[in-house]
Amino acid sequence: MALAETTLPKPTASAASQERRAAWFLTAPALALMVLILLVPVVIAGVLSFTNYSLGNSGFDWVGIKNYDRLFTRSTYEKMFIATFTYVVTVVPISVGLGLGAALLINSLGRFREIYKTIYFLPVMATLLAMAIAWEFMLHPTIGMVNRTLEMGCGTFVESLWPFMAESCAGRFPVWLGDKRYAIWVISFIGIWQGFGFNMVLYLAGLTSVHRELYHAAEMDGAKSAWERFRLVTWPALGPTTVFVVTISCIRAFQVFDTIEAFWPQGGGPNKSTYVMMFAIFEKGVQQNLIGIGSAITMLFLVFVMFLTLIQRWLVERKVHYG
């Protein structure tokens, strides 16, 4: 094909048009799939969120903003927002903080770095659903490892130090997953457990790009303590990593589903205290066939996620890194 083109009178122009045709031929499948699988569904969700459509019905009625109105007035959805934001606001800072802390500690070590890194990364690799079931056994009120371990503290000095222990030893230990006071925190804990190793690895990669000379320069300028060096050199240099880590943690946190579905297949936890958005989409849209309301939640979810990513891109464009 390329050879045939060279025999044509205007080789440059035809080569360009040939290149153009090849380019469209190569991008066409990707382009078609992008539109069909990513863009069309967004439009469909947008349209259906203004209807009372359900699968199996031939038609539907336009209901205006009724679905959105419901989202902001019904107490079920208030619980949904509370659960989602509690989870995100807990998991993101703690998993980023632990990731950074672990990365700094590991980076300052001479030996055993690889072992810690490997172990902390294990939960990232493991099938979350399987680990959720393992955690469920750990948290079993009577035969679970968590309460058994806590029981060992009964009758020791721990009781006097920690009111929770004194109370539990006198009465009984929490039923964790069945208790609306603890459920969302347990879910958050598992989210942190699963995600901080990922953040740690990103920070470790970020740390390798901090120049040694910067530390020397900071020391010359009188930054003697480790904290000063961290504040003046490490933290600013890790700016871009932090922006990225926070955004990706947020997006992942918004999508929490596996643990909640595994623990409470129906209803989203005790008193709906863990009724997060992904679970709501699944329950309303797929299980109860209320497509309209499910689509409205989907649209809201997309707005949150896109907003977060746009903030991230904006921060990156502003070149948060001084390093």
Binding site: L38, V42, L302
Partner: peptide, 11 residues
């Protein structure tokens, strides 16, 4: 910007 899980319902 679009996570596939988020558009699971229309898909």
């Amino acid at each position: 910007l679009i996570p596939v899980h988020a558009i699971a319902l229309p898909l």
